[in-house]
Write a protein that binds this DNA or RNA. Sequence first.
DNA 1: GCGCTTACATGATCCTCGTCATATTTGGAG
DNA 2: CTCCAAATATGACGAGGATCATGTAAGCGC
Lengths: 187, 187
Amino acid sequence: MRYPASETAEKHERILNEAAKLFRERGFAGVGVAEIMQAAGLTHGAFYAHFKSKDDLAAEALVRAFSQSSDRAYAATANAMEAKQVFLERYLSAKHRDRPGAGCAIAALGAEIARNMAVRAPFTEQVKRMIAGMATSFGRKHKASARQNAMHLLSAVVGALILARAVDDPKLSDEILASVRERLAST
Amino acid sequence: MRYPASETAEKHERILNEAAKLFRERGFAGVGVAEIMQAAGLTHGAFYAHFKSKDDLAAEALVRAFSQSSDRAYAATANAMEAKQVFLERYLSAKHRDRPGAGCAIAALGAEIARNMAVRAPFTEQVKRMIAGMATSFGRKHKASARQNAMHLLSAVVGALILARAVDDPKLSDEILASVRERLAST
DNA sequence: GCGCTTACATGATCCTCGTCATATTTGGAG
DNA sequence: CTCCAAATATGACGAGGATCATGTAAGCGC
């Protein structure tokens, strides 16, 4: 049967959101098209009415994941120092570590992105946007080093989150988050 | 036929080394048992004479990957400052970025390790060893903050390498490596 | 309001993959 | 010297996965 256009758009959004969540939780290779469609309340056959391929979905879901999590990244705070503290406390938190499906796409999918040609271009665009945003939001006096500081800060939080997630020992995981948080705060 | 024990041990090593390389290049999920065995010069059937399962191989190959790359990590240099510089220049180099199969297992497999229960325990052990090694090799005066500095340094280089590999733009990739290298050197 | 088109479900097809079964052959233990 | 066990090749099996084919029924343009 043919379905109303409004519901179709909603279903498209559900597919994208579920894919953005599942891909971050289990990786591109770890989730199948059928499971994503089931999570969106549909069957696998309808998939190709919405996306050209799984890679195409991966590229769109990655952008969706960025827009979901970066909305929460830069809280509305006035001065740069406070904004950076808020960012650090949110990014390097136990909650973020324990909920990869709702968190940063770089930490969840970084290594896989490097191998998937279909997603590298949109990923690069999002990273550029993120670096520029962090440079202006967190930068203080030195304009020249603001961009460099942003790259360093992003690298450090991404690496720390990946380590905290991969490590088996809860104490070490917490220690990594706390150490890097503290270390980056005093900069 | 039965094969001489000496050759068998060599084949076991070849399987481990090829697995350590291929897993880092394409991820645990991206490489099949058959391909690893073929790379080692054998057929897939012989696999289960050497390892209990693919996960078992993954755990052993991960340790192998660590021992391969960490051998090159801490060059034999006298003072801490110089050792750190050497480490930074090696880890955040274009060569390391472009040859993941011979490089750091954390950057290549980090996100996947968090999802694979079979490899988290050995990974944790290796990370602990690495943090302790960096703290003693690079730490200078303040003993207390040496461990904290090591965690921060490791996080930053891992994150930077992942970003440099995932990004599509060669200029941005080089800039990330150079910025983080420079930023970490002056600490 | 007619009919084309579209969004969906069902199911099929062709892979790939992890694992296991079996046969073979010979090194090495006794 | 004999016989067992081990290491390998070949092949099979079941599961799952991406993609496509087909049927269908109703929304929407005309």
